[in-house]
């Protein structure tokens, strides 16, 4: 089934994002990021803190101006668009972001109604005030909130409710692509499942494409079709969720997976985290994303490909 449906929605090529370029404190936040996102899928982006997950998300949605590289969205290169231009505004409507901290992502001085309708106002999506109110009420219902809450202020809501308001705001402009930047990591566990299920449900209803950034591996596996693993500002492995989980090839991915606690005391006692030695990346060899087995990419130098291929074959044997 996957074969015929694979239409690329977002294609990122050699994306680089440096901060304070050319100064003493230059930071190379992300380098050589290359991946595709297919329409209708969820791509999970995992990695440790500081690995550049959020920077990648923010560069794609053009909160930053990428230093170099290409971001093709629906066939248009987003990386070079100017802020405020007509094409940019169109991109702004088609791509939205859900933020990490539900307490910081809603303006405390605005009513829920106005927060959600902000995008509607900017892109003139409502015919009149009545239409605007109706759209807001529908969105609130869609995310499981009471439409009567439209006139309240964000501080009156719980974390999970706020996150749902954030989701409603993103959905208000009817986007095709949503970047979810750790949308659940600030919520408590019981609410996390609620929000993830809501995201899945909405994805089906509206045929959305997600880039789901997280560091909670079990949650990423649950929601993602494919998973990309990041380390040190680079993508190290990219494949389908089950491939990454069951047949990890890159040593960093293996180390990351070995760090997941297992909710079974018998097994957990035997679990040994595998440390990862990042010095192997700094041997000066040029590395690129190499397709080891179909749809399974690993960041490897030419000399390492054979080793990975052998490892992949060993899994299948």
């Amino acid at each position: 089934m996957a074969e015929q449906k694979k239409e690329v929605l977002v294609s990122v090529k050699d994306l680089q994002q440096f901060f304070n370029l050319g100064k003493k404190d230059e930071v190379r936040a992300i380098q050589d990021i290359t991946f595709d996102i297919y329409r209708g899928e969820t791509l999970g982006l995992v990695g440790e803190s500081g690995s550049g997950k959020t920077t990648t998300g923010r560069a794609i949605i053009r909160l930053y101006k990428p230093t170099s590289g290409e971001i093709m969205f629906n066939g248009k290169d987003i990386a070079k668009l100017k802020n405020g231009s007509k094409e940019m505004q169109e991109f702004r409507r088609e791509t939205q972001m859900i933020f990490q901290d539900p307490y910081a992502s809603l303006n405390p001085r605005m009513k829920v109604k106005d927060i959600i309708a902000e995008g509607i106002d900017i892109h003139h999506l409502a015919k009149n005030d009545k239409d605007r109110d109706e759209q807001v009420a529908n969105l609130l219902e869609l995310v499981g909130l009471n439409p009567d809450h439209a006139t309240r202020y964000p501080h009156e809501f719980s974390g999970g409710q706020r996150q749902r308001i954030g989701i409603a705001r993103a959905l208000a402009v009817q986007p095709q692509f949503i970047i979810a930047d750790e949308p659940i990591s600030a919520l408590d566990v019981s609410i996390q499942a609620q929000v993830v299920n809501l995201l899945k449900e909405i994805q089906e209803k509206r045929n959305l494409t997600y880039l789901f950034i997280a560091h909670d591996l079990s949650m990423v596996k649950y929601i993602s079709d494919r998973i990309a693993v990041m380390h040190n500002g680079r993508l190290v492995e990219l494949s389908t969720a089950s491939e990454v989980y069951n047949h990890p090839l890159h040593p960093y991915t293996k180390s990351l997976l070995s760090a997941i606690p297992i909710p079974d005391p018998e097994v957990e006692r035997k679990r040994r985290p595998q440390p990862y030695d990042s010095s192997m990346e700094e041997d000066g060899q040029k590395r690129t994303m190499v397709e080891i087995t179909p749809e399974h990419f690993v960041y490897a130098a030419a000399g390492e490909v054979e080793g990975y291929k052998a490892a992949a074959a060993a899994y299948n044997a």
Binding site: R58, L63, R92, R93, M97, F99, L106, E118, G119
Partner: peptide, 9 residues
Amino acid sequence: FILAAKTLG
């Protein structure tokens, strides 16, 4: 919330 306003255009 400022970033959100930016992403909304």
